[in-house]
Design a protein around this nucleic acid. Structure first.
Length: 279
DNA sequence: TTAGCGTTTCCTGTTT
DNA sequence: GAAACAGGAAACGCTA
């Protein structure tokens, strides 16, 4: 195993090879190589990776023994690269973006080799560093209002360029996020891992499933990064959230801004459920 | 090939 | 007045 392979190994792999020293080794490697190109791609990576690795590692004790990756504070304008330990919330927790009650059955104890490289379809981790300067609005084309000079705009989402012309403009695009990575699951998984979302959102009442966006635009941009959509805003995200009311995945919380509540058609957020999925 | 789903985008109007 | 909420309309991209 060369250095690059070693650095790309997930902690559970290192643990499997080196035993208890694996964690320590991983932390050391991380601190040496923490110049992650993207302030948030690690969390995106994590969410993607977890959705697959959780299924592979069901039944394994979760590598939950590492510290908070975020640290107590985050700057106002963005998330700092952190001593994040990939996999530290991987197994044993509800799988981000892929629960849907279908998590369990595909046992298999994965961990096949160290390369967790882009295998999920069209490389979900191919985030262009230029794309991923989160929270710097300059990199987010202001797609909101149309050009006022052109008078009234047609309602609805405008047609995109054809695939060919689009390729010419923005190069290869990866496929749409696979099924299972729904918005409400993404939100739920952020909430279930406060060490990852610290400063972004929090539970208002965990028993009731009530939660609040603390940094709504940051969450939206994180969601946008997951969906390879650099123009995501809280306005758009909240529209998608409102569609959940009808399906009773979310319930209205009247009179409280940025506060939502999980509905009866959501799952995986209740403490007993979350704990259950860890066993 | 196509229908349906889950968004995404844009809009207008209302409420806080 | 700004920000958030509400919901209609239509398009997009994916899966079945």
């Amino acid at each position: 195993m060369d250095g690059a392979a070693l650095c790309s190994c997930p902690p559970e792999e290192l643990r499997a090879v080196f035993g208890p020293l694996g964690d320590q080794l991983y932390a050391q490697l991380w601190s040496l190589t923490s110049s992650f190109p993207d302030e948030l791609s690690w969390i995106i990576d994590l969410l993607e990776q977890d959705s697959t690795s959780f299924q592979e590692t069901l039944g394994d004790p979760g590598p939950f023994d590492q510290g908070s990756p975020f640290g107590p504070e985050m700057p106002e304008d963005g998330l700092q690269p952190s001593p994040y330990h990939p996999g530290s919330y991987g197994a044993g927790t509800p799988s981000p973006g892929s629960l849907d009650g279908s998590t369990g059955s595909t046992a298999g104890t994965g961990a096949s080799g160290c390369s967790h490289s882009s295998d999920s379809g069209a490389s979900d981790v191919d985030l262009d560093p230029r794309d991923s300067k989160l929270f710097s609005r300059a990199d987010f084309p202001d797609s909101k209002k149309g050009d006022p000079k052109h008078g009234k705009r047609k309602r609805g989402r405008p047609r995109k360029l054809s695939r060919e012309s689009r390729d010419g403009v923005e190069g290869r695009k990866s496929k749409h996020a696979p099924r299972g990575t729904h918005l409400w699951e993404f939100i739920r998984d952020l909430l279930l891992h406060p060490e990852l979302n610290e400063g972004l959102m929090r539970w208002e009442n965990r028993q009731e499933g009530v939660f609040k966006f603390l940094r709504s635009e940051a969450v939206a941009q994180l969601w946008g990064q997951k969906k390879k959509n650099s123009s995501m805003t809280y306005e758009k995200l909240s529209r998608a959230m409102r569609y959940y009311y009808k399906r009773e995945i979310l319930e209205r919380v009247d009179g409280r801004r940025l506060v939502y509540k999980f509905g009866k058609n959501s799952s995986g957020w209740k403490e007993e459920e979350a704990a259950g999925s860890r066993n």
